[in-house]
Design a binder for these strands. Structure first.
Lengths: 213, 213
DNA sequence: CGGCATCCGTGACGATACTG
DNA sequence: CAGTATCGTCACGGATGCCG
């Protein structure tokens, strides 16, 4: 734990200050998980293979103290604790987007040792969509949904869309990988028939026709 | 050192891959320093108070191996080694900008323990300028220059501008701090007389009139 | 003197075991 | 389920030494 003050770079620079709060190992990946909405400790631990229990608990405590997340008890029955990003924490989305955009070039093919979760494809997909609208995405690894263009609330979430989505997308692994790696654009995949799109609203139209430009 | 492979999150996610390369302590701050152009080991060590000599050497080696930076010997006389960002390394600018934008809210007033360097104000100023053009900035802490809107080459640099700048700016500490902290916009500071601007080209006009919108 | 390499004490990290 | 406890290992920070 950290009785008084956590380790700081002690530099009068906003980037260094940001790293004081989110520069520790695992912190930004926990933010990535929590962008999918409230999660339980056990879920976080399951979707962050390699993190030890004490480090996860310590990071969550630091994030609470730093104003990035809150711990809340769900109403009974099932009175479990969930962790949830604050608005300040959700503001880290551009940081993760910038990191993800830069990291696409390093992604390459999936290594045998690489873990995968369905909702990890949410960030790259989100960068390819203007929205607004609710999109449900079905991969072989699982199902998740995107709140494209959402100004508040969770940006994406695990499982089927809560309510009727504006569009549904079904992708095979190779296509999802190519999009995540930046080698294929979503609209092109849809047009080429590598992705199955259903829906007829404006969001489905954007996905079919590519970005409005 | 790292004989075989550096520590990885082993996640098939571009953000995690990015953190594999730049997530270690000090790495992104070294990138921030190198965005100012080629620097010697000793200069880096001087502008990164708190970093130990072996960690700095190790990070530089990792960054070389990761394709972020190169080590080059300057032509004699003064045949010293300098470290320089590759194009890939310079592509991290949006990451530092996103981190810096988020961190502005944490900056507040300068703490007694905080180190300051003049060119650390380059990143927040750069976000306020569209450019293109060469701007020389004079603070109490020192002088630096910005290549606003530059598509390649160093984004900013220590010391006076190399050649005649398109505009010159003189700021006092309070004004620079307020701009860095996001509480004051550059154009407003200029208009209110808190910043002394000279020059009559398009860049000076932009700084006087605010962003073209 | 600049550019590291080495040594050492401390703390962070990762794995496992255990507890309310 | 949600952590805490324990422990071995490694990374970090500080100092010092070496070598051109």
């Amino acid at each position: 734990m950290s009785p008084r003050s956590r380790r700081s770079y002690d530099q009068y620079c906003s980037a260094a200050r940001a790293l004081d709060l989110v520069g520790d190992r695992w912190t930004l990946l926990i933010v990535r998980e929590l962008l999918a909405g409230p999660r339980r400790y056990t879920d976080l631990h399951a979707d962050l293979p390699g993190v030890s229990t004490d480090v996860l608990a310590s990071r969550l405590k630091d994030m609470e103290q730093g104003g990035l997340a809150t711990r809340r008890r769900l109403p009974p029955p099932g009175a479990v604790f969930v962790y949830e990003l604050t608005a300040r924490g959700r503001d880290l989305l551009p940081v993760l987007q910038a990191l993800g955009a830069w990291g696409e070039a390093e992604l390459g093919e999936r290594r045998p040792t690489d873990a995968v979760r369905a909702h990890w494809f949410a960030l790259p997909l989100l960068r390819a969509i203007e929205g607004p609208g609710l999109l449900e995405v079905r991969l072989e690894e699982g199902v998740f949904h995107l709140h494209a263009g959402a100004a508040q609330g969770p940006v994406y979430g695990d499982g089927p869309a809560p309510g009727e989505p504006d569009a549904r997308l079904v992708l095979d692994s190779a296509t999802a990988t190519a999009i995540a790696g930046g080698r294929l654009r979503l609209a092109d995949a849809v047009r080429a028939g590598h992705a199955d799109l259903s829906g007829d609203g404006p969001l489905a139209k954007e996905l079919r026709d590519g970005p409005t430009a």
